[in-house]
Design a protein around this nucleic acid. Structure first.
Lengths: 396, 396
DNA sequence: ACAACTTTGTTGACTAAGTAAACTAAGCAT
DNA sequence: ATGCTTAGTTTACTTAGTCAACAAAGTTGT
């Protein structure tokens, strides 16, 4: 494909992506294009124009026209013919996974990880920038610019993940970075010329775990690390709450029977003071530890006992939370999977110890460490442009 | 208006209402009609065709066409002229509040209350049927038929409120009525020829309280009565959970320090065993009591002490719940307002006793007893037909 | 008083995106 | 070979928008 050709397509797609956001008209056409795209992306069986017509209820003429536009945009390609089902063989359609890219930047206290993710969820390039001293916004922008150099025309959207409270593209309050009210999404959008969004680390993780949420499943995802946070996803989207603080359950009191340990927040009896990785594995634990070292820390008798206590505290919070929102499943993510089956078993036992009448027992599982952490942010970025049409399942 | 004329309009509107639900096309036109209708209904200042054009971004030509259709449907009427703003005086538009009706049926253990509610939220007719022995589905259908007799052509939608677990128009499990898996919505739809929906009592109450939720506000509504339940509303719609059991927090354990009292569910330490009206006011309390009698029960020293205990238990549940979903406000509804300012004050004090870092203090208020209980179900019914265009604010 | 300007709302020509139905293309079955 | 089935395209028509011109009804400056 020629460069000029690619540029033209890219411009078309940009305009298309913007449509829903800035135009008044809800755009039926856009809706239909996304539906068709979604079908092609998700359906396990080969998708053809005829299939799109049947599944959407649109006529075959319209289906053809939609597919033609998706091919013109470079999002879809014809890939051979399907088997005959008694008549003419149909033309298979597939997503052009490597046509476009999403930029993800994960901002940590001492480093920035950036990645270019394709439409299948594969990271085709990634880089780490170590940062000494304070984290500056300009450093983040530079890191993103550096990674995307040469790929500009293929970049569809971007997402920056930061620790702390975020709302509507603004970093409202990040203690870890020392940022307050930074309009990061706007700054990055300006810098790279593609729509950028901002997401909190716990929310990003929840979106990663909701990667197969093709249904409108409700998930409660709990992050265990140096701190404790939670997030609720419905389908592929987040519940962010009235002030963007939904899920900040770390410092809610759950232990009332003579709470001994004081939490770093100053109060005692917080969920975090019992269930955070630091609380269970000791102060030597940090979020930078790898899985092996964490597992090692969890093997001492003392850690085991504290994990039991932590599981009990978490179970208390989970019972109320799951009764309130009635999720399909509860996912314990963050560094928790390194704690192994014993912790999960204890947590389940504690959780099921007091089965509340009228509620269903919700399955609890660990997060899937094999999922790339870029998946959630990439989904978030893509959602702002293409809705939930492309699932990014990281088929590798 | 002639009967034949009314019938024709009614047919038109029925077809219109059905559109979004059974047709494939998202229907931009329908969306635009509802937007226009919503503007006319909510805007405090007089709404004219020109206003609709400006606010929706559509052209004045389209606005005229939309208004013409709304007038043809009988939903809107021209009501005089507005003041001049430097040019031709505009024609005011207003909702024809009494053009159409919504049927609400509230099914209790020993009675059925039915009401015809107009588009302003006023109950224009209501009736009570006392039931001895078991509650039968046919009795409910008869009660609805009897009330709607003579109004059939003006009935737009219906909603049946039942105690228990409901999901998608089906009464999944109602211990109080002894019903399981009754497809009530389908039965009523069949009987009256207008789309019917089914809603649980706690959810209905939450919708009533969300009556001024023109924004997308998140509300946590807690019902206190013989039992304890909760519901979460976002904007005007309910979060029902994966299995329709969202909000069933009554039998979640919240008291762990040597819970004395055994709950009727068999376990001990349940929220309900501390915070239900029966737990706080004694076994003489029933949901049939009026506000005065309830206030009387709450005035004894013993009740006061138990209300303190109940407030503490509820505060525990509220802290976790509000941290998780970050609502705009928390509403304590059901029979609770009869407990007076003392209980609410105690609850607020208990709630704010352990302010969790990273969360905002959420205002807690009582439900508004002056709101008709038919409002919530009527909103629910209307939402299935007209979306959230008509707010039903019960402008008396 | 009257021309000039504003604002409201309607009308008519045009456009985008759908449908229905006829048609072409390509396979299978007797 | 002929007919039947499925896939996809083409053509004529419909719906619901836009834009631009215009009519109707008001206000304001001289």
């Amino acid at each position: 494909m020629s460069t000029a050709d690619l540029q033209r397509k890219s411009d078309l797609l940009r305009r298309f992506a913007r449509n829903g956001q800035f135009e008044m008209q809800p755009g039926v056409r856009r809706e239909h294009l996304l539906r068709a795209l979604g079908l092609i992306a998700r359906e396990p069986a080969p998708v053809t124009r005829a299939v799109i017509a049947r599944r959407t209820g649109l006529t075959s003429a319209t289906a053809s026209s939609l597919v033609a536009e998706l091919i013109a945009l470079g999002l879809v390609a014809e890939t051979g013919r399907a088997e005959s089902t008694g008549g003419k063989r149909a033309t298979r359609l597939e997503i052009e996974h490597d046509a476009y890219l999403v930029v993800v930047a994960v901002v940590r206290t001492r480093a920035i990880d950036t990645a270019l993710v394709d439409l299948a969820g594969r990271a085709v390039a990634s880089r780490r920038v170590d940062v000494t001293g304070g984290m500056e916004v300009s450093t983040v922008v530079d890191a993103i610019r550096e990674l995307t150099a040469g790929f500009e025309s293929r970049v569809l959207a971007a997402c920056v993940q930061v620790p702390g409270v975020t709302a509507g593209g603004v970093v409202v309050d990040s203690v870890q970075l020392g940022w307050r009210d930074v309009p990061l999404a706007g700054i990055v959008t300006e810098a790279i010329g593609a729509p950028a969004s901002v997401v909190n680390d716990v929310d990003a993780e929840a979106l990663t775990e909701a990667v197969d949420a093709d249904d409108g499943a409700i998930r409660l995802v709990v992050h265990l690390g140096e701190g404790v946070g939670a997030a609720v996803t419905t389908g592929g989207s987040l519940m962010s709450g009235a002030t963007g603080r939904a899920g900040e359950i770390g410092h809610v009191r759950v232990i009332y029977e003579g709470a001994r340990t004081k939490c770093r927040c100053g109060l005692s009896g917080c969920l975090e003071s019992a269930t955070s990785m630091s609380a269970m594995l000791g102060d030597t634990y940090t979020d930078e530890l790898d899985e092996h070292d964490t597992t090692l820390l969890a093997s001492t008798a003392e850690a085991r006992e504290r994990m039991g206590f932590g599981a009990r505290a978490l179970a208390r919070a989970l019972r109320i939370s799951s009764a309130l929102i009635d999720p399909q499943e509860i996912v314990i993510a963050g560094a928790a999977p390194a704690l192994g089956p014993h912790f999960l078993g204890t947590l389940r036992d504690e959780y099921e110890m007091y089965p509340a009448k009228g509620t269903t027992q919700v399955p609890i599982r660990y997060g899937r460490p094999e999922l790339s952490e870029y998946l959630g942010p990439a989904r978030f970025a893509l959602a702002s442009v293409l809705g939930d049409a492309l699932p990014l399942t990281q088929a590798s």
